[in-house]
């Protein structure tokens, strides 16, 4: 039990929560970076390697395109079907191999990224699918390369949907990061668990919860705002 009458109680609380928030930002930020890079690639490949898609003949090989499509689809489904709390534990040996430890904010990046990629990949897939095929055909008729079509047509036209997908992913990652925090990943989850739960301090618990609610609100609103600004439909 923390002594609420301690003169340093509120400043300690603020320090602890801010430190936790800093760790959460670090963990979520880093995993978001990897998630966006790999998730975007995976999502684009999921759509374009389909039969009849832009990259259905990947490097000139129809078989390779089909293979990549099937493998990605299965991997993404597996990634999305394992509950995060189990994925996190499953990944402990892998995390240790990669970062040398499975405790701390950096180690937390690994399970978050592995969970984030398939999640974002599906959202990217949905966004890219909404781009009318006529636009691809128009670019082809202009003599565009597949890379140009991919970047300047498919991804560029999906940007508003991608912005929404991104904010949904950030919110998801913040939630997951709290879960990792409770088992040694640091961050706000760690603060809530150790101070709020194990040391029975409602102030800490509510402090964390309020901050999390605010963060989610801010990121979702940012995403919505960006999507609205970027969309000219």
């Amino acid at each position: 039990m923390i002594d609420r009458n301690d003169p340093y109680f509120w400043s300690d609380l603020l320090d602890t929560i801010l430190k936790g928030a800093g760790e959460t930002f670090y963990t979520v930020g880093l995993s978001l970076l990897f998630t966006v890079v790999f998730g975007l690639a995976a999502g684009v490949l999921l759509v374009t390697t389909e039969s009849g898609g832009l990259l259905s003949k990947l490097f000139g090989s129809r078989a390779l395109g089909f293979f990549v499509n099937r493998v990605l689809d299965v991997v993404v489904n597996i990634g999305r079907s394992i509950p995060f709390i189990i994925l996190m534990i499953l990944l402990i040996p892998f995390t240790r191999l990669l970062v040398g430890s499975f405790i701390g904010p950096t180690a937390a990046v690994v399970p978050l990224t592995i969970a984030g990629i398939p999640f974002f990949a599906r959202l990217v897939e949905i966004g890219i699918r909404e781009v009318p095929v006529g636009l691809v055909e128009a670019a082809q008729s202009l003599g565009a390369t597949r890379w140009t079509i991919l970047t300047k047509v498919m991804v560029a036209e999906a940007v508003p949907a991608l912005a929404l997908g991104l904010s949904t992913t950030v919110v998801g990652l913040i939630g997951y990061s709290a879960m990792v925090g409770a088992v040694g990943g640091g961050g706000l989850g760690d603060v809530a668990f150790r101070y709020g739960y194990q040391r029975y301090s409602p102030e800490y618990m509510f402090g964390v919860v309020i901050l999390l609610v605010l963060l989610v609100q801010v990121f979702q609103s940012l995403g919505n705002f960006a999507a609205r600004r970027l969309s000219h439909r």
Binding site: P132, G134, S141, L142, G143, A144, K152, A156
Partner: peptide
């Protein structure tokens, strides 16, 4: 692709990029 530069095409549903301005669409 070079041969297609010599053949323009227009469509029933226009197929313009919604994310680009008129000028940027032409510039594509």
């Amino acid at each position: 692709r070079a041969a297609r530069h010599n053949i323009g095409m227009i469509f029933q549903h226009f197929n313009l990029l919604s994310s680009r301005t008129v000028q940027a669409n032409v510039e594509l």
